[in-house]
Amino acid sequence: MVPTDYYVLLSAALFTIGVLGVLLRRNAIVLFMSVELMLNAANLALVAFAYRHANIDGQVLVFFVISVAAAEVAVGLALLVTIFRTRSTTDVDEVSTLRG
């Protein structure tokens, strides 16, 4: 059996890579993908702990996270398409009308 620590360390590494993606990239679609990566890293930690404690609640939470992520991606990508229609860009630096 692989210790839970290994899964949690892998999950932390994946989450950090996702954060790096959000901070470094300027393409809004890649930002979205990085958010998905972070959600997946959290899911991995949840499943690892659920297995460790033989407790099914963590798995149920992962199920809900996945379905809410599906809804979030649908709305987010629709927003991106709408922004692209008015601005002809997916660069987040260009879309800064709300900046104070």
Binding site: V2, Y7, L10, I29, F32, M33, E36, N40, N43, L44, V47, A48, A50, Y51, Q59, V62, F63, I66, S67, A69, A70, V73, A74, L77
Partner: peptide
């Protein structure tokens, strides 16, 4: 595959169909 290693066959299937299937096709 890691979900499968953690003995979670249902989440393995959901991950493949919803994430790898639906969401990535949308992207």
């Amino acid at each position: 595959v890691l979900f499968l290693l953690l003995r979670s066959p249902f989440l393995f299937a959901i991950q493949l169909t919803v994430y790898a299937g639906a969401i990535m096709v949308l992207f």
